[in-house]
Simulated scan of single mutants.
Amino acid sequence: MNSTITLSQLGWQPVFQQQLTLEDYEQASIARILAHHRNGYALLTENGQTTLEMHHSLPAMTVGDWVLIDSDNRFIRLLERVSLFSRKAAGAKVAEQFIAANVDTLFIVCSLNQDFNLSRIERYLSIAREANVEPVVVLTKADLCQDSEEKRLQVQDLDSMLMVEVLNALEPASYTVLETWCRAGRTIAFMGSSGVGKSTLVNTLMGGSVQQTGSIREDDSKGRHTTTSRSLHFMPSGAVLIDTPGMRELQLTDCESGVNETFADIEALSKQCRFSDCQHQSEPGCAIQHALETGEADLRRVQNYFKLLREQARNTATLSEQRDKDKQLGKMYRTVQSHSRQQKKGY
C-alpha cells in the first residue's frame, strides 16, 4: 500500500465533508478504519497508516467507519455513518456485532451448487434494505451447476428490480459484469456463507491473491471457511472493497423495515386482510391465506417472511433489554466511584 493516499481514494464523500468544521480541518486528521483487531483499530489517513488502541471510552466502531484523530493519534470523534451492517452476535451471547459501515453496494454472494438457498438470500437482502444499501446478488460456481439459468430466475422472481449476476470461475471474463459497481471512490462489501467462492471472487477483482482460498469438500459440495476477519482493500478500479468472513449465522436485529421492503409483496397482501390485527392463520378474510390457496403467494416465502419478522423482533427486544441493564450497571458504578471519592476527601 502506498504511504500516501487521497481521501477520495479512501471513499470520502460530500456527506462526510458536511459534518466537519473549519476547526476540524485545522486541528484534526481524517482517518478510515481499515481493520478491527482485539487490541484496537488499524486506521488509514492521507499521511499513511496508524493505530488506535482499544479503550472503553471509544464508541462501537467497525471497518469502513470514518473518525477524526488529533496530532497524537488520539480519538476525537466518529463521523455519522451513511450505512451500517450489524447482526446479533453468533451463539448465545447477547450483543450486537457491527459488520461494516459506509458501504454503497452490497454484493450478496451465493453459490449455485448445494449452497443455493433463496431464504438465505432474502435474509441478506433484508439487512441491505435496512441499511439503505444497494444489493446485488452474485451467483457463483455456474461451472458446477447444470441449471444455473433456472436458479437465476428463481432469485430474480424475489424482486423484478433486483440486480442478479451469474459468474463462472472457468470464465474470468464473466467477472467484468461487476465493474459497473466498482467505480473509483465507491465502497463495496461482500457477504455470504462460508465456501461460496467469495474469496476467489475478491482475489479476481483485486487482480491478485488477497484472501486465501479453500477447495471444495466433495462430500457435501461446501467450501472451507477461509476469510477470518473483516478487512478493507483498494481495488485497481479505484473502488474500496470490504471483505467479511463467511457467516454461518446471520441473526437479524432491528430490521423490521428491511424485512418488510424485501417482502413488499407479502406486506402489501397483509394490508388487504379484513381485520387489522389479523394473525394470518385461519382468520376469515385473511388476504395472505387466500393468496396461498390460489397460488398467488409462495408458501416458502410467506413462512420466511414471518420467521424473519419474529427473529428480528425477538433479538431487538433482547438487545434492548441488555442495553438497559448495561446503562443501569454503569450508573451504579459511577455512583459507587463518586461515593468512594467523597469518602476519601472526608479523611
Rank of each mutant, 00 (worst) to 15 (best):
S111T: 07
S111Q: 00
S111N: 14
S111P: 01
L112W: 09
L112I: 09
N113W: 01
N113H: 12
N113M: 03
N113K: 05
Q114N: 15
Q114A: 13
Q114C: 04
Q114E: 15
D115K: 07
D115V: 00
D115F: 06
D115T: 06
F116A: 09
F116S: 10
N117L: 06
N117C: 14
N117R: 01
N117P: 10
N117T: 05
L118F: 01
L118K: 07
L118R: 07
S119T: 11
S119K: 12
S119W: 05
R120E: 00
I121R: 01
I121T: 09
E122T: 05
E122C: 13
E122W: 08
R123V: 05
Y124W: 15
Y124K: 11
Y124C: 08
L125M: 11
L125C: 07
S126R: 00
S126I: 08
I127Y: 13
A128M: 08
A128K: 10
A128L: 09
A128F: 10
R129Y: 15
R129G: 02
E130H: 07
E130K: 10
E130Y: 02
A131R: 09
N132C: 10
N132S: 15
N132A: 14
N132F: 03
N132Q: 12
V133Q: 05
V133P: 08
V133R: 02
V133Y: 05
V133F: 06
V133H: 05
E134V: 13
E134Y: 14
E134C: 09
E134Q: 14
P135F: 11
P135M: 14
V136D: 10
V136W: 12
V136A: 09
V136L: 14
V137R: 01
V137I: 14
V137G: 01
V137A: 01
V138A: 09
V138W: 03
V138E: 01
L139G: 11
L139T: 06
L139Y: 11
L139S: 08
T140D: 08
T140A: 13
K141C: 03
K141L: 08
K141Q: 13
K141V: 07
K141I: 02
A142C: 08
D143F: 07
D143I: 08
D143G: 00
D143S: 07
L144F: 02
Q146N: 13
Q146R: 13
Q146K: 14
Q146A: 14
D147F: 11
D147W: 10
D147Y: 13
S148Q: 04
S148E: 13
S148H: 01
S148N: 00
E149S: 12
E149L: 11
E150K: 13
E150G: 00
E150C: 07
K151G: 11
K151A: 09
K151E: 06
K151T: 06
R152G: 15
L153E: 13
L153M: 10
Q154L: 11
Q154S: 10
Q154H: 11
Q154D: 11
Q154Y: 04
Q154C: 02
V155E: 04
Q156V: 03
Q156P: 02
Q156G: 01
Q156N: 00
Q156I: 00
Q156C: 02
Q156D: 07
D157W: 04
L158Y: 06
D159R: 08
D159T: 02
S160C: 05
S160Q: 13
M161T: 15
L162G: 07
M163Y: 04
M163P: 08
M163L: 03
V164D: 03
V164E: 01
V164T: 00
V164S: 00
E165P: 03
E165L: 09
E165S: 09
E165W: 01
E165K: 12
E165V: 13
